[in-house]
Every structure is written in C-alpha cells, then in structure tokens.
C-alpha cells in the first residue's frame, strides 16, 4: 500500500498517532485517581475506538485498497451477533438493568 494521509506515508502516519494515543491512554490511567470515573471511562473508550479504527483501516487495509469495501462489510458482519451476545448474554443478569451504572440509564444526560 502506498497510500498517503495528509501527505504522509499512511503506515508511518498511523503508527505515530497510535503511539501517541497509547501514551495518553497509559498516562490517563496513571492519573486516574485525580479524574472523575465517568471522564476516565469516556477517555479510555474514545481512545480505544480511535485506535481500533486506525489499526483496522490502515494496517489491515480496510481502506485504500481496491477490495476494501467488500472486506469491510465482511469484517462488520459479525457485529450483529456481537450486539446480540452483549444484549442477550451480557445483560441477562436479573439485576443487570437495575444495577447499570448511572451513565447507562435514561436521564443521566438530561435526555
């Protein structure tokens, strides 16, 4: 793949940001005692999602290749089963709904 992102080699560009995000991730946890719990989770999940996309899109060639689209669709196919797994297994505890953290409940975000 000789794709470029913002004029830089895609692999190098992706690697630089992945390293930076990982450093932030570890640093945030190191300072977790000084952060609100919800903020910590939000930062960790956000960084995780961005890293996930970076690795899948650039390193796994789900972008910038002629067959990227069909392979992206293939890779995303299990998502429906993953959602079902989480809903039907992960949240089947009798008290799971009542004991969900506040940030997962209606009203937490003023909605």
């Amino acid at each position: 793949m000789s794709a470029k992102i913002m004029g830089f080699d895609a692999y190098n560009f992706n690697f630089f940001w992945l390293m930076l995000l990982t450093a932030i991730e570890v640093g945030v946890v190191a300072q977790s005692e000084n952060m609100a719990w919800a903020t910590l989770i939000f930062v960790l999940v956000s960084i995780g999602v961005v890293k996930f996309i970076g690795i899948a899109a650039v390193f796994m060639h789900l972008r910038f290749s002629p067959d990227s689209n069909v392979l992206t669709a293939t890779a995303l196919f299990p998502v429906i089963f993953i959602v079902l797994l989480v809903l039907m297994v992960g949240l089947t505890s009798p008290s799971a709904v009542e004991n969900l953290p506040a940030f997962c409940r209606p009203g937490y975000y003023g909605l």
Binding site: I82, V86, V89, G90, S93, P94, S95, A96, N99, L100
Partner: peptide
C-alpha cells in the same frame, strides 16, 4: 473474544 466480553459484562453487572 465477544463471548468472553459478554461473559465479563454479565458477571461484572451482577
């Protein structure tokens, strides 16, 4: 890995 994560969520919430 999804089944492992579902198990994790299942027990962590209960």
């Amino acid at each position: 890995f999804s089944s492992l994560f579902a198990t994790y969520i299942r027990y962590r919430t209960s």
